[in-house]
Design a protein around this nucleic acid. Structure first.
Length: 724
DNA sequence: ATGGACAATGTTTTT
DNA sequence: CATTGTCCAT
């Protein structure tokens, strides 16, 4: 099979370029995956590279799997030894192998977002810091950002007293992690990058091994990933990256599209290949996409040319409210299916926030149509799943205190707050982990530690310790599935969930599903199972099977394509999201998000919004997304309502003022608008979430950084507008 | 220690 | 509004 057959000239150039740094700028639908897989195959087949010397990294397991299948399809069985996986997965393997250089041992567990937040809470409690002032979520965000920037606690930049405190929490957090023999997501990258940076022998070893390094979605790399790649390519220098700055949508996770430019300046002799031919969409869709993305700065212009030519116009629809928006989508889908114009599986409905899926789901349910949902209340995030996984993790790694605290009283076994604190305290005093202390206590009164506990507190601990010790003993001879069954049985989990109720039954079904997944690890063992469970992503859970419409966030849509796409909630405040209003960089990312959504569509695109949307329990009038105004009218069927702000300016301001009879002018125009930054004498700085006219006054909801959400009347509140 | 009732509190996106 | 935390009676 000719690896270059059927490729256009640019693709061909991209596939055959391999020496030194190569940057492939791949527009949407330009055959990016094809180029990557053929590149890998080309190096092995044409250049005689050993698979062992190749490293290919992606962001999701799904992308990795797809690449593996396609490369295998091109080469047959010649891919033994190829390193192909996600950044996180590759790092895990490397860290386990090189654990001797690190402050934890090779059977470390991986802490997911939920664990990370629990650990921050733990750190706050240990340091006796108020959770109200230092919200675990925001502290965790700061720590995560630091880690992505390769900043250790001692490097944490301090610009305020708050930073000082956060730095201390970070230090404690890191301490707790190491004590738990655990690494969080960010650590996987951070430790790998640090290890390669500081231990030359390790760096040499991998840098010499990987003659060819290929990277997918390069625009989404963060500093840690970037440095990691630099180190790994430091010997051979063959670093091949594929990306599209316009599709960078993970800034909040530390991704920095400027890595693309950084790459070009760090490697001056980089070869750049531009892929502009689009094989996916019609020209109308691409024209709309370009119109949306063009206002962004910091990008280089890219033509999107539809190989398929022109098709139909885009459809714009404005619904009265979010309910009828959902109804419209479902109605269009069922009509098109009934007319035989499309298959249910051809449709995708995309939205900015997960919360928007609910009404859509209800509409589908109401119409009796099946659908599938990507992400949102994910399987692995469900409580029962986390409980069972928590047990397995504890058995696997007694140092995992987060898992221990999670499961020690589930089902309730008289080990509440007080007893848990005592356990932790005694463990600390004896310089052992809480898990080890439990094992110790399983011996009952034979254990010297037994009487360290006050009154009867040791008794329930000893009871649980015995169960735990039993599992630990059984661990070497049991498969993950058998171990899980034994635990479920010992703790009476099915009874605890109460399968006679609907909710309990559905929870138990999730446990059974987890059982089914565990059954696939009979050979690979518990470590592999726990690792995969931790590193699975939303996009990985999307099964191709089943021809039904897909509901997903715009983020989850990246890398996918559908014949017919609906993008809903095209309103200011939703898309672009209100939280991005005050940050130009964030606003550009909102544009990219829409761009990603638009370019998923192959044949037809529906842009939908609602005149009223319910948020915080109130239906509020909306304004159309400002991005809609950038799409030329001649690409659209249906016209976009004039934004109220524009309307207002046309009417005379005088008409909108009146006197309330008491000599004070009541508000008839809104002085405040969503997104404004304001300052209050007492509550400090805040941001206006929304404002509306009510009973002759203006009512505003403001989110204050210090004190949270407040609703107040504009005529009474003493507010200064800091920024519009 | 537990469980239920009420209050507060908060909504972006997720490897 | 819907989830999460807190208080209080057992």
């Amino acid at each position: 099979m000719d690896l270059l057959a059927g490729l256009n000239p640019q693709q061909r150039q991209a596939v055959t370029s391999w020496e030194g740094p190569v940057l492939v700028l791949a527009g949407p639908g330009s055959g990016k995956t094809r180029v990557l897989t053929h590149s890998i195959a080309y190096r092995i087949r044409q250049l005689g590279a050993r698979p062992y010397s190749l490293l290919a990294v992606t962001f999701t397991n799904k992308a990795a799997r797809e690449m593996e299948t396609r490369v295998a399809g091109l080469l047959g069985e010649q891919i033994q030894g190829l390193t192909l996986g996600t950044f996180h997965g590759v790092c895990v393997r490397l860290l386990r192998r090189e654990a001797e250089h690190l402050p934890f041992d090779s059977n470390f567990v991986i802490f997911d977002a939920d664990d990370q937040e629990r650990l921050v809470k733990q750190a706050l409690r240990d340091l006796d810091i108020d959770e109200k002032l230092y919200r675990p979520g925001s502290v965790h965000g700061a720590i995560s950002r630091a880690k992505n920037e390769l900043l250790l606690p001692e490097d944490f930049p301090i610009l305020s007293y708050r930073d000082e405190v956060v730095r201390r929490i970070y230090e404690k957090y890191q301490d707790l992690l190491i004590r738990s023999n655990g690494l969080d997501f960010d650590d996987l990258l951070l430790w790998t990058a640090t290890l390669l940076d500081q231990v030359p022998a390790v760096r040499e070893k991998y840098a010499r091994r990987y003659e060819h390094i290929l990277v997918d979605e390069f625009q989404d790399t963060n500093m840690a990933q970037y440095q990691l790649l630099r180190h790994l390519s430091s010997y051979h220098g063959n670093l091949y990256v594929v990306g599209d700055v316009d599709q960078s949508i993970y800034r909040w996770r530390g991704a920095d599209y400027r890595n693309v430019r950084r790459f070009e300046s760090d490697f001056p002799k980089v070869e750049v290949v531009l892929l502009e031919e689009n094989y996916r969409s019609t020209q109308e869709i691409l024209d709309a996409a370009m119109a949306v993305i063009t206002p962004n700065r910091n990008r280089r212009h890219k033509e999107l040319r539809a190989v398929r030519g022109t098709g139909q116009k885009l459809q714009f629809y404005e619904a009265y409210d979010d309910r009828s928006e959902a109804a419209y989508v479902v109605d269009r889908i069922s009509t098109l299916v009934a007319m035989g114009r499309a298959d249910p599986g051809d449709f995708a409905v995309m939205y900015r926030t997960n919360a928007q899926s609910r009404l859509l789901e209800e509409a589908f349910l109401h119409a009796g149509l099946p659908y599938k949902l990507v992400g949102a209340q994910r399987f692995y995030g469900r409580r029962e799943v986390k409980d069972v996984v928590g047990y397995l993790r504890l058995v696997y790694n007694p140092a995992d205190e987060i898992s221990l605290l999670r499961v020690v009283n589930v089902p309730p076994r008289r080990i509440g707050q007080k007893t848990q604190a005592a356990l932790r305290q005694q463990a600390e005093r004896a310089r052992m982990s809480a898990g080890a202390m439990l094992l110790e206590l399983s011996r009952g009164e034979d254990s010297p530690f037994f009487e360290m506990f006050k009154g009867r507190t040791a008794a329930p601990l000893a009871v649980f310790g015995q169960l735990y010790a039993g599992w630990r003993r059984a661990l070497p001879e049991l498969t993950p599935l058998k171990l899980m069954d034994r635990i479920l049985d010992d703790i009476g989990y099915e009874t605890y969930l109460d399968t006679s109720s609907d909710e309990g039954l559905s929870r138990w079904e999730n446990v059974l599903e987890l059982r089914r997944l565990a059954s696939e690890y009979e050979d690979r063992g518990l470590m592999a199972f726990l690792e995969d469970v931790a590193l699975i992503s939303d996009q990985d859970t999307l099964d191709e099977a089943g021809s039904v419409p897909t509901l997903l966030t715009l983020h989850a849509a990246k890398g996918l394509e559908f014949p017919v796409v609906f993008i809903v909630g095209l309103e200011d405040g939703t898309l672009p999201h209100i939280r991005s209003f005050d940050d130009p960089e964030a606003m550009e990312e909102e544009r990219r998000l829409l761009y990603v959504g638009v370019t998923r569509a192959k044949d037809a695109l529906y842009l939908v919004n609602a005149q009223n949307r319910t948020a915080f329990g109130y239906a509020e009038p909306t304004e159309p997304s400002r991005f809609l105004g950038d799409i030329p009218d001649d690409l659209l069927n249906g016209s976009v309502r004039l934004r109220r702000r524009d309307l207002l300016s046309r009417e005379s301001a005088a008409q909108l003022r009146w006197d309330d009879g008491n000599g004070t002018a009541a508000a008839a125009t809104r002085k405040y608008a969503a997104g404004m930054k304001v300052r209050h004498e007492v509550w400090g700085d805040g941001m206006v979430l929304n404002s509306r006219l009510q009973d002759g006054d203006e009512t505003i909801d403001i989110f204050f950084e210090q004190v949270g959400l407040k609703r107040l009347a504009a005529s009474l509140a003493r507010l200064d507008i800091m920024e519009r």
